[in-house]
Computed example of a mutant assay.
Amino acid sequence: MVDLRCGEEAVVAEGEASPDVHYVHGLGTAPQQSDWPALCESELSALLEQFYDVGALREISWHSPRPFSSAARIKTTKGVFFMKRHAAALRSQEDILEEHRFIRFLAGKQIPVVRLVPSRNGETALALHGWTYELHYMGRGEDVYRDHTSWTPFIRWEHAYQAGEMLARLHGASYLYGAPARSTRLLITNARLFGQVDPMAALERAVVEQPAVGEYLDQHMWRTDVLERVVQPFHVAAYQALQRGPVMWGHGDWHGSNALWSSAGGDAQMSTVLDFGLADRSSAFLDVAVALERSMVSWLDMEG
């Protein structure tokens, strides 16, 4: 039995005001308290024993403020690694393995992605006590956007240009990836709903299938909002474009903080592509649209 309990151990992220509370980026510009505890030393020490040749924990050097998992950069006696912990209800072991298969395929096509650390059972994702864990070797480059909230603009136009070039490379490689769509319907990017002839009917069915989503949406006039702002002005043209474009896996969350860079300067190259958690079978059109939205629509400022 692997004991992953943190006990009374207090672990904090950089910049936290309280030693007992872990803050993350929320759906606005202000930090919010995390829904789950930060990774702690006793938990990580036990976990590292489940992986091959990664050494013993020396320190936790940084806690990620990203909201949908608990993640940390850690130093061991063998090097520097990045551990992520997901609630199993949100990301199961198979969900993570689907993502990892895509990452390994891209690595074989010379796309610069992080290497995955296999566990002693041969898998790159571990399911333990209601959590799902994955361990990565550190990617090459600087985490220039580490302190920026996700979905904010590139700090330099040259970074946006490099990001566009890399996304085109990724699409050229992923066109050859023949895996089916993800089995999960949580936190992925695809055209399952708005790629339908009648997206409103598809949305209505989805709300029935996911009652908690329906309860949240029913607090708003979402049917009128979606119909008048999305479906009527844009859907016919968007649907036609999606039918013409090739179907392929996309990254699903393309923005500056999901990459490492050779520097923060104007001559920087995107040196490592990160975080394929939202990746799914979709299209290059949709992936480019998501990339533009992440960098050009300040929707975090709209919250509240």
Results as ranks from 00 to 15, higher is better:
Asp287Glu: 01
Arg294Ala: 12
His148Gly: 06
Lys109Ile: 00
Asp225Ile: 15
Arg229Gln: 14
Arg156Thr: 00
Asp53Gly: 03
Gly26Met: 04
Pro37Met: 05
Cys6Gly: 15
Ala71Gly: 10
Leu39Ile: 09
Met302Val: 10
Gln219Arg: 08
Ala291Cys: 08
His22Leu: 11
Ala237Arg: 08
Leu242Ala: 07
Leu203Ser: 05
Ala125Leu: 03
His86Met: 05
Ser262Ile: 06
Thr29Val: 12
Val231Glu: 12
Phe82Leu: 07
Leu57Glu: 01
Arg5Gln: 14
Asp35Val: 05
Ser42His: 11
Leu286Glu: 00
Val247Arg: 10
His148Leu: 12
Thr272Ala: 09
Arg85Lys: 14
Gly141Trp: 00
Ala173Trp: 03
Phe82Ala: 09
His86Cys: 04
Asp225Arg: 14
Gln240Thr: 08
Val144Pro: 00
Arg205Asn: 13
Gly55Trp: 14
Ala279Met: 02
His255Ala: 02
Met302Pro: 05
Tyr216Asn: 09
Ser262Gly: 11
Gly55Lys: 14
Leu39Lys: 01
Pro199Ala: 14
Ala163His: 00
Val230Gln: 14
Arg85Asp: 09
Phe81Trp: 02
Gln162Met: 15
Leu193Trp: 04
Gly252Cys: 02
Arg140Ser: 14
Glu215Cys: 12
Arg229Leu: 13
His251Tyr: 07
Gly178Leu: 13
Glu49Asp: 15
Ala264Thr: 11
Gly245Val: 13
Ala238Tyr: 08
Arg156His: 08
Ala206Asp: 15
Gly252Met: 05
